[in-house]
Every structure is written in C-alpha cells, then in structure tokens.
Design a protein around this nucleic acid. Structure first.
Lengths: 207, 207
DNA sequence: GACATTAACGGACTCCAGTCCGCTTGGTCA
DNA sequence: TGACCAAGCGGACTGGAGTCCGTTAATGTC
C-alpha cells in the first residue's frame, strides 16, 4: 500500500534513520539511485519500469521495493538532495527566503522558490506526488513545507493558518503546476508573479 | 492514457453527445452503471475491479472501457447526476448559491457547497480525480467549477481571478479533503467554516 | 575464526488496468 | 425486405506495479 517516509530520504527535521544501514544495503541504494537517475534522464520518467531500474542497477526488484517502497518513493529519494538544499536555505540562508525578513516577504519568497522548485523537477515531482493517491501529503518533506508556510501565516496573524498553508501547497502541487505549464502553456515567470501575489493575499486579508 | 470527457457524463455547459447512442449501447451503459453502483456500495470502491463490474453487468470489459474510458471515468459517470444537480442550483437556484446574491456571498456559498459535495461522495470523487495524474483537471465538470469561481472572483475585482479559482479548487480536491477528514480526523463543520473564511480572503485582499 | 542472528537479497509470481482485434448487430437506405 | 456498414461488442492478451518467500551473507559475539 505504501506509506513511504522511509524511502523518501531524510527530510531535514527528521534526520538519519535510527540504525545504520548495512554495507551491502548502502551499496545497493547508491547503485539504484544512480541507475534510476541515468535511465530517467535518458528515456524519460514514464518509459522506465522498475524492472529496468533493477536490471540496470544489477539488483533484484524486491531490493528496490524494500529500499524505496514504490516508484514514487524512488523519485522522492532522487529529489531529496535538492529538497534538502532548499530547506537549508529556508532555515539558515539569507533573507527573504531565510530568517530575518518580515513574514510577508518570506512567504512570498517561499512561494515563488517552491514553485520554481516544482517546475524545475516537474517530472520527478509529478511521479513522487501521484504514484499513489495522497502520496503528496504523506511525503516527509510535505510536513516541512506545510509547517513553514503555516508558521509564516501565523506570524501574520491571519485566521486558519494551517488550512491556508495547505491550500497554498495544493495550488503548487505538481499536478496543478504541470497543468499550467504544460497543458495550458502558461509562462513560468508570469505564474511566479501571480502566485507571489496570491501568497500576499493569503497572508493578509480576511478576519 | 485517458482524456475521458466522454465517459464523464454531460456537464451542464456541454450538453448531450452529438449523435444519439445506439440502443444496445444505452442498455449496456445503464447495466454497467447499475452494476458499478451496487458493487461499490457493497464492497467499497477499492476492492472492485473492472472485471468485477463487467461480469456483474453481463458485459465485456472492452465495452466498459469503450463507454467510460477508465475506472475514473466510470466513477465520474456515477457522480455526474449529483454534480449536475449542484450545477443547476448554481446556475438557477435560490441565492446565495444561485444568482442574485453579491459575489462574495456566492463565492462562500459555492465553496462550502462544493466542499460538502466532495465530502459526501469522497470515495467516488477520490477515484475519479486520481485514476490518472491530472485527471481532476481534465474532468468536464472541472471546467464548470473553475469558470464559476473565476467569474465570482472577477466580479470582486481581485487580481489573477483564474489562478485564485484554481488554487481554491486545488484546496478542495478529493486528496486534500480526504487528508483532512480521514487522515487528520478533522471535523467537517469546522472545515466548512474555515474554507468559507478562506474563500472570503481570496475574494477580497491583495491588489 | 566459528557461529548465531537477522537484515537484506532477488526473481518468480500475482493481480489488475487497459488494449487489441475479429465478430456481431442496430440503424439506414434503396 | 434485404443488404450494407459503422458502431458496438467482448474476451484473450499485454505490460508493469507490487508481493512473497526461500536463500544468502553482513555483523556482532565468544
């Protein structure tokens, strides 16, 4: 059924797994990630099967699933390094993304940076968010983004900060971004502007 | 691959199919819908396969797919009667859902009614929105909801009405609603209140 | 260094969504 | 009323995700 969260790769607030990975397990994880990255780049995410990855990595399919739970978990793991970089900038980088700027500016910075992140890694994010219904909301990193946005909205003193944060993230889901960018052919920069304004609106109006 | 829109059942603004359905086709559609409804109710959406539906309907699997495109399309068809009722209330029912009330009240009424709709039919909606990545945004009815919300937001004179409408709907997706109601155990009435306030916020603040 | 423990391995297997294509039949037109 | 043909039918088939479980070999212990 898949509730990855193990295969997701560590999301900053969670940290490394409780017990150290066995040497062969670590080696196979590296092999699998390398093989997946190469195959995805070469043939496109959608036309690569789990058997392909297993074969290319020289690893059994069972091993792949033990490590990454499902295809989406594999994508999450590939994304996690990039996600952690962004999380690091948010936690300790320069303002307005990092601490120091007023919350309305940080919220706008977060929104646009996150949108760019999604757009940059669209195929992988799409896979990781849609492999299973609700996968998006169960990824370890989702908790980070949601908590951050909620914190900023709370600092602005708006009502229902959590709900607003979740709605904002829903609007930045891979599905939505893909629809805008690919199906509707919208321009990314225009979208960045619009979503920045929308973040401002969520961070101000209403009771 | 699936771009249903045929199996969706007519969404008000679209109307009936160009040419009339052949008698046997109509009979098989009725059988399939009846069988699906019964099986879904009896065993739960998730543990019913398309073969099950085909067998119970006394129809070949190919027929099922020809009529409904995929499992999500079958769910959409089952929902469409209910959706059309709601669309009718919006287009011609009493205010504030129907015409006559000021746009901010209509937006709130639409938001809460739509949330209740999603919650009421959660399993079916979940299936219809997640059967394929992006299915939610391609359903015929999505265009209706989005256009309506956009119209109301435009009447309020806010910036980026379409983007705001789409973000609002993303926040009311089956995936999100299911997470709130089932995973987080939130109370529906509290959620209705919160989303009503969020609709107000989207319909007012910001440039 | 032998042994026990137990995590990890891997590939055969199951299950199901969705496709294909040769056959049938309702609707139509002469 | 016959006969033509596109629309419709249906079930065998394919492809791939995810599971199962007997086997293998790292790691810790004495």
């Amino acid at each position: 059924m898949s509730t990855h969260a193990a295969g997701d790769g560590p999301s900053l607030p969670i940290g490394p797994p409780p017990v150290r990975e066995r040497a062969d397990a670590a080696r196979n994880r590296r092999r699998a990630l390398a093989a997946a990255e190469a195959l995805f780049a070469e043939r496109g995410v959608h036309s690569v099967t789990m058997d392909d990855v297993a074969a290319a990595a020289g690893v059994g399919k069972g091993t792949l699933y033990r490590r990454f739970t499902d295809k989406g978990g594999l994508a999450s793991a590939l994304l996690s390094e990039r996600a952690i970089a962004l999380q690091g900038e948010i936690l300790g980088g320069p303002p307005p993304l990092g601490p120091g700027a007023p919350p309305e500016l940080r919220l706008r910075a977060f929104t646009t940076a996150y949108l760019r992140f999604q757009a940059t890694h669209l195929d992988l994010v799409l896979l990781s968010e849609t492999s299973t219904p609700g996968a998006r909301l169960r990824k370890g990193s989702y908790a980070f983004w949601a908590q951050h946005a909620e914190m900023l909205l709370r600092a602005r003193g708006v009502r229902d900060p959590l709900e607003r944060a979740e709605v904002l993230l829903a609007g930045l889901s891979a599905e939505q971004v893909s629809s805008w960018l690919r199906d509707q052919g919208r321009d990314l920069e225009a979208l960045v502007e619009a979503m920045g304004r929308l973040a401002d609106a969520l961070g101000s109006a209403g009771t």
